[in-house]
């Protein structure tokens, strides 16, 4: 019986293998040619790279890819005006925060048969409007729109941005209220963010927002847990990452003051395990912090 190794060295096997190799190579070349030659594929490729960059906190690189997505889609639409291209163009415009352009793209996608296009266009337009109102100083009206989008939007990029603005806006408002009113407002805000977490548990940013609100409620243990969750799941930018580390340290200090001795010992053990796994120099020094 010829063993596998010997078989691989026989001239006929080499010839067959070589022929298979060239067939596969040829097929690969054809596929990559088709992929490169299809404008839709090119647009998809840029968009996927943009998303990939966002996942790795490469916001500037992501921006470049979303810009390329938009340019490639605009060019492709001239010869092939299909709904998919308008959707990709709109998604890239959302990332570039070009709200009215995104609204137009989604509307056109809808007119070409993309059912969600109408709803997305309306949500993007609303977000753009809220932003303009905020810039004009009409923060109350802007806040109402963010509130609506956080509750009703089915379009994740808009929900995420609206949640960020809504939390900032509501926290700012809470400073102007009496203690009791403030408590009610913060509770409502937390519930709103919690429902977002339920739907998108993997989204570290929502856990970060939740941790920030809990600190306003002086619920430091829960704020700490949410900040840990945010750290483990990932955050969109370096500055938010560092702010979240600061939040963890702040909660650690507050709990040191608040917890009973036995509870503190339990907490400290957990904290030590976490910071060891994160590579912190000590309880209050993440690697990025100047000593």
């Amino acid at each position: 019986m010829v063993n596998d190794r010997k078989l691989r060295t026989t001239p006929s096997f080499k010839k067959r293998a070589s022929s298979e190799y060239f067939k596969i190579l040829g097929l690969g070349l054809v596929i990559s040619f088709l992929a490169c030659s299809s404008p839709l594929q090119e647009v998809k490729l840029y968009f996927t790279r943009g998303q990939e960059s966002l996942r790795h906190y490469n916001s500037a690189q992501a921006r470049i890819y979303f810009q390329k997505t938009k340019e490639a889609a605009t060019a492709a639409i001239k010869s092939q005006p299909v709904a998919q291209l308008y959707v990709l163009k709109g998604l890239a415009e959302v990332q570039l925060e070009e709200w009215s352009a995104a609204r137009r793209s989604f509307s056109l996608a809808y007119s070409l048969g993309f059912d969600k296009g109408e709803k997305w266009a309306a949500e993007v337009a609303l977000f753009g409007l809220a932003q303009s109102l905020g810039e004009l100083g009409l923060s109350q009206q802007a806040g109402q729109i963010y509130d609506y989008l956080v509750t009703r939007s089915q379009f994740e990029p808009v929900t995420l941005l609206a949640a960020q603005r809504y939390v900032d806006f509501t926290l700012e408002r809470s400073f102007t209220l009496e203690e009791r009113e403030k408590e009610v407002l913060l509770r409502r805000l937390l519930n709103r963010v919690r429902s977002l977490i339920k739907e998108n548990y993997h989204q570290g940013f929502y856990h970060y927002l939740s941790s920030q609100i809990l600190a306003h409620q002086q619920l430091y243990r829960r704020s700490f847990e949410e900040a840990v969750m945010a750290r483990e799941l990932g955050l969109p930018t370096e500055e938010i990452w560092r702010d979240n580390d600061r939040q963890i340290i702040f909660c650690f200090r507050q709990l040191k003051k608040d917890l009973l001795k036995e509870d503190w010992q339990d907490f400290l053990q957990l904290y030590q395990r976490l910071i060891t796994s994160w590579g912190w120099a000590d309880e209050e020094t993440p690697p990025w912090m100047k000593r």
């Binding site: 500037a60 470049i64 960020q164 806006f169 920030q212 500055e239 702040f250």
Partner: peptide, 24 residues
């Protein structure tokens, strides 16, 4: 990837959240 950012936005754009940190 961020070298372009070194020119475009010299500092991190800090969020509105910094203004609304709790008193504590």
């Amino acid at each position: 990837h961020r070298q372009a950012e070194l020119m475009a936005t010299p500092v991190w754009p800090w969020p509105a959240r910094i203004k609304v940190k709790p008193d504590e």
